[in-house]
């Protein structure tokens, strides 16, 4: 593990999605666009999910992300994880990142829970020996019991979350990025997950997570970033930002 201090530095990051016209994806559409020339019906519109976002997060910070759906919270997390390379600006992260996004994708549906633990563990940077050593702990934490012997296609959303969360936090990451995962588990699991999150935070590592739960944000995060239409609306102490956000959502003259 490198000894440089943990940090996430995002500078003027722009993320652009091509949306709408799926014709551009096929050979036929491409040929048609050659024939019709640019300016024809195949010119796809873009959506800028992030429009020049700058954030610096240092060791020990617990940062919450709030904002309405589509404000760019998940996109920003993925930029921090290095999954979305910004089209303009930069994103530099120091430390072993463990992302936990869109559970229920990235599984081998026909393989057992055990096998999926192994694959996820590897993709998160664990060696096979480490994984085998941690299997019992991960299995116990997930509380999936006999279900681990079944193919994961039989799992419910909550079970996917248990499995993914158990693996992701078992790798002992330095930077944990969570995207609204806490809501999907049942009550007892949420309790356990909260406990593990607290342990994690006590170790002075970086946590960034997006949530619609003001209670969770207030409980965990000393700093909160309010995302709005791809830009940072406000970045400051959680209590202030959450209050302003609530006011804006509740007031009739909201943006």
């Amino acid at each position: 593990m490198n000894s440089s201090p943990l940090s996430i530095t995002v500078t003027d990051a722009v993320v652009r999605f091509q949306v709408g016209n799926a014709d551009g994806q096929t050979l036929k559409g491409f040929l048609a666009s050659l024939k019709n020339g640019p300016g024809g019906r195949n010119v796809a519109p873009f959506v800028d999910a992030l429009k020049g976002v700058s954030v610096k997060i240092v060791a020990g910070e617990r940062v919450g992300l709030i904002g309405h759906n589509g404000a760019g919270k998940s996109t920003l997390l993925k930029v921090m994880a290095g999954i979305y390379p910004p089209v303009a600006g930069t994103a530099v992260t120091h430390g072993h990142v463990c992302p936990l996004f869109e559970f229920a994708t990235g599984f081998e549906y026909h393989r057992s829970g055990w096998e999926n633990i192994r694959i996820r563990g590897m993709l998160l940077g664990m060696s096979p020996d480490e994984i085998e050593a941690k299997l019992p702990e991960i299995a116990a934490f997930s509380e999936l019991g006999n279900f681990l012997d079944y193919p994961v296609r039989t799992y419910s959303t909550g079970m996917f979350v248990r499995l993914a969360f158990a693996v992701s936090t078992a790798v002992n990451p330095e930077i944990l990025l969570l995207d609204e995962v806490m809501g999907a588990g049942d009550l007892s699991f949420t309790e356990k997950a909260n406990k593990r999150m607290r342990e994690f935070m006590d170790q002075g590592k970086i946590l960034v997570f997006s949530s619609h739960s003001m209670e969770l944000l207030t409980e965990y995060c000393n700093r909160t970033i309010w995302m709005d239409h791809g830009v940072i609306r406000e970045d400051g102490p959680t209590a202030d930002v959450v209050q302003h956000y609530k006011n804006s959502v509740l007031s009739p003259a909201r943006v």
Partner: peptide, 10 residues
Amino acid sequence: AEGYIKQFTY
């Protein structure tokens, strides 16, 4: 590998 590419940084 879409599910993996969108979640992991390998």
